[in-house]
Design a protein around this nucleic acid. Sequence first.
DNA 1: GTGACTACCTTGCAGCGCAAGGTACCATGT
DNA 2: ACATGGTACCTTGCGCTGCAAGGTAGTCAC
Lengths: 116, 116
Amino acid sequence: MYRMTETLGLASSLRRGTLEFCVLALLDDHPRYGVGLAQELGAAGALATTEGTLYPLLSRLRRSGWVATSWQESPAGPPRRYYTLTRDGHAALEHFRAEWVAFRDAVDLIVGTEIR
Amino acid sequence: MYRMTETLGLASSLRRGTLEFCVLALLDDHPRYGVGLAQELGAAGALATTEGTLYPLLSRLRRSGWVATSWQESPAGPPRRYYTLTRDGHAALEHFRAEWVAFRDAVDLIVGTEIR
DNA sequence: GTGACTACCTTGCAGCGCAAGGTACCATGT
DNA sequence: ACATGGTACCTTGCGCTGCAAGGTAGTCAC
């Protein structure tokens, strides 16, 4: 019998390597703060993630110089840290797009999911 | 300046989580041996991988019961270990296809690569 | 027997997503 | 002033998998 428990981590494995670029792409649209990013990714279904993933990820992006941050007052609550795409971040995103398309098409071809 | 060295591992990160299913898909076509699989993946460009990855991966598939193996003489060289997709393996592959399509479309939508 | 080719296997590591734990600010009510 | 609830951010420990590097072993030709 096919064991469902052996694939429960599949979506998580798929996210690995792409999630940070999805974050860059969201920031390409306009600056956002942490929880806002989490909500947008959650809305994308297959890209939903947790704070334990998101904040270290944002920290890595910051240290890479791909995003810059600034603090702003929130309407009613603690201050929010906004993230903005840098020039380097934009370049990294462009590079990812090319790599992703090549990878995606290769997988589609082998797996047989290219018919859309 | 955008640091190219920071993305050299990008293709590798993308492969993570999908490579084993690409192997299952190749075996869905017909049984193959290790080096043959490596060559097919290599031909797919973005899915090229190393023996250090492939053999532990095949070992995991075997222990999961997703593939069965048998030894066959080679034309001129050492014997080859052939891998065949099991019923469980086929089911796992079908499940991956659904998850992959959902994930792929979500990334395409966010990153802006949905126009094909 | 030696060397080249072919095929398979294992080990150690880096890096990232998850789960769980934590700190801190603001607003409201007592 | 203090407690509570909501909001926002952060860190740590872990499991997992692809890569790099090291290894064993069978076949064939010389």
